[in-house]
Design a protein around this nucleic acid. Structure first.
Length: 180
DNA sequence: CAATCGATGATCT
DNA sequence: GATCATCGATTGG
């Protein structure tokens, strides 16, 4: 199982979003296979947090590829992205769902007697214990044990669809997923 | 199953 | 003051 390096995340965001499917996300003592992602690409993408330029919240999107961008929304939820492309260009891949692999008991504790542990962007953050306070800006390509790993698994059939939960940019098919 | 709706507060204008 | 890259409970078929 080899670590995914920064050069992977430096690729075009759509390629990263698609090729992240099937890879293993490791956060602390937990891990899961990525089964759903979405791409958010630059200030011209009206659904992207960076659509109206840099702000304190979205500043990590402008940092080098391979960093975690974790934000808080709806007054109660966190969502996690991995920054892509080049430093200074705000783009990232939203992690929407994983299939839990290790640390499942820990995830169950955090999720509190729920069946579906990590099949949504906020549920995934709860299961893995990710918050903006603890994880925003974390480098997944440095010395941290946290990161993305490749064990050779390839999804059978990748599906492509509009992104979820947005009001603009619905014409773009920038959501990628497969059936576990 | 699917559709609807309230919760809840940081963030930006 | 409005918006929000969501979730879970509830309602109806």
């Amino acid at each position: 199982m080899r670590r995914v390096h920064r050069s992977f995340f430096a690729q075009p965001t759509l390629a990263v979003a698609r090729e992240l499917l099937g890879k293993i996300l490791v956060i602390g003592s937990c891990s899961g296979r990525i089964i759903e992602t979405e791409a958010y690409i630059g200030e011209n993408d009206t659904a992207c947090h960076a659509a109206r330029g840099q702000t304190p919240r979205n500043r990590v999107m402008y940092s080098p590829p391979g960093h975690l961008y974790v934000y808080f929304t709806y007054g109660m939820h966190h969502c996690a992205n991995i920054v892509t492309e080049r430093e200074g260009f705000p783009a990232a891949v939203l992690l929407r769902a994983i299939e839990p692999l290790t640390g499942i008991e820990k995830m169950r504790e955090r999720r509190g007697k729920k069946d579906r542990l990590a099949d949504g962007p906020a549920k995934l953050c709860i299961a893995l214990g990710m918050t903006k306070e603890s994880h925003n800006g974390l480098d997944l390509c440095g010395d941290e044990p946290d990161g993305v790993f490749d064990d050779g698994f390839q999804p059978k059939k990748i599906l492509i669809a509009p992104r979820i939960g947005i009001r603009e940019g619905l014409d773009k098919l920038w959501r990628f997923y497969y059936k576990a």
